[in-house]
Nucleic acid binder design. Structure first.
Lengths: 212, 212
DNA sequence: AGGTGGATAGACCAATCGGTCTAGATACTA
DNA sequence: TAGTATCTAGACCGATTGGTCTATCCACCT
């Protein structure tokens, strides 16, 4: 009865086709606005087969969110404890530039991330996406807390606020990047990515680090 | 036949009740996800009276957006040309702290702003909200461009990118503020508002200004 | 050949969607 | 009192929604 094990039996292509088709629909129209019928038709499935693999719309949404989060957090591994005052920001920069191309290759990723963020408050979805969202948020919180402990991150305000602002700025830059990506040379991309990171660091770093 | 003049005849209470009810619904569920029936019922109107005052859902949405934008831009007047290197950031700070309480009193404001932002790409809504959105964006662009001209704003990247990041960070901080507002003393509010502004300024200011 | 369970297709359902239309209430004018 | 314009109410419409159910097909086993 549980849909997930069944779904794993599907061929990887059909799985990812459905998931990315759904991700696009969700990213474009939001959870409620997304049409399940459109997703199913778009992925070339019949009603029957969809409901054979999934319980309902919410189940699909959770799977999509998990799929998206796996793409991101699955590719970022950092040993927080090993970071110190000197290595903190360079390590984050490395993480950022490695992660950035993904948001272009998988343009729905940013959309789903934003959607998970805002739908964390939707009562109908509460608890479904909460875990994934909470995990990621917790990871970033731990990261910045470590930054504070080693004296690399400012500590003159609530940590949650700082996390929110960093997320917000990076999300906005991602959106800009996705729109502009094709018109940029790889050289420009690197250059601008450096600017984005540096600007974000200025916002979050302690005063001493605020200078280049 | 045009709905706007008629709508102006309604009592101010019923007008704002409908508009804010609609704003909440739109902010929560997005344009497509918002239920017109729910809005109408929530505002205590009948189908007939609604369609007597409005053409359709899109018309209502545009009115709501205009209502929200008026609240914001109507209360901010700044003579861009008069800003110079010394007065630039202080003037913006004054603007910010005056604007901030509004996002608490009118919590749907931030939601509508974000919605207008993202629905500017929805083909069905194109042109409807575009003007309001474009005007505001243009205003901020002009503002930061002036900042560049007088040497107060960094100019090592695309201006659009900088605007996007500033918007993103401030929007995120707004969201945090709305959630946390009630638990803060007015003293804490001022203090944190100062931190938020200072962090944002660090991101956008030229290096010399990055220091307190 | 007959049986069994995984997989698939699509007709079908009640509920809801945005939107239309008619009937009537109210109020002012002639 | 009859007429007219401004409102208000809600029944009603076709389309679409998320979701159910039955029939069939196919592979494998005996």
């Amino acid at each position: 009865m549980s849909p997930r094990p069944r779904f794993e039996n599907l061929s990887a292509e059909r799985r990812s086709e459905l998931l990315e088709c759904a991700a696009n629909e969700f990213a474009q129209h939001g959870y409620r606005g997304a049409s399940l019928n459109r997703i199913i038709a778009g992925a070339g499935l019949s009603k029957g087969v969809f409901y054979y693999y999934f319980d309902d719309k919410a189940d699909l949404f959770e799977t999509v969110v998990a799929y998206a989060f796996d793409h991101v957090v699955g590719s970022t591994r950092v040993d927080i404890e090993s970071l110190d005052r000197e290595t903190f920001w360079p390590a984050l920069q490395k993480m950022y530039v490695e992660l950035l191309p993904k948001t272009h290759d998988l343009p729905w990723l940013a959309g789903i991330g934003k959607l998970a963020y805002q739908s964390a408050e939707d009562p109908e979805l509460e608890g479904l996406v909460a875990r994934h969202f909470f995990d990621t948020r917790q990871f970033v919180m731990n990261l910045l807390q470590r930054g504070r402990d080693v004296g690399a991150v400012r500590d003159d305000g609530p940590l949650e606020l700082l996390v929110a602002m960093v997320f917000g700025a990076l999300e906005a830059s991602d959106r800009w990047f996705v729109e502009t990506w094709d018109g940029l040379s790889s050289q420009e991309r690197e250059q601008i990515a450096a600017i984005v990171f540096e600007a974000t660091r200025r916002m979050a770093a302690v005063d001493d680090e605020g200078r280049a």
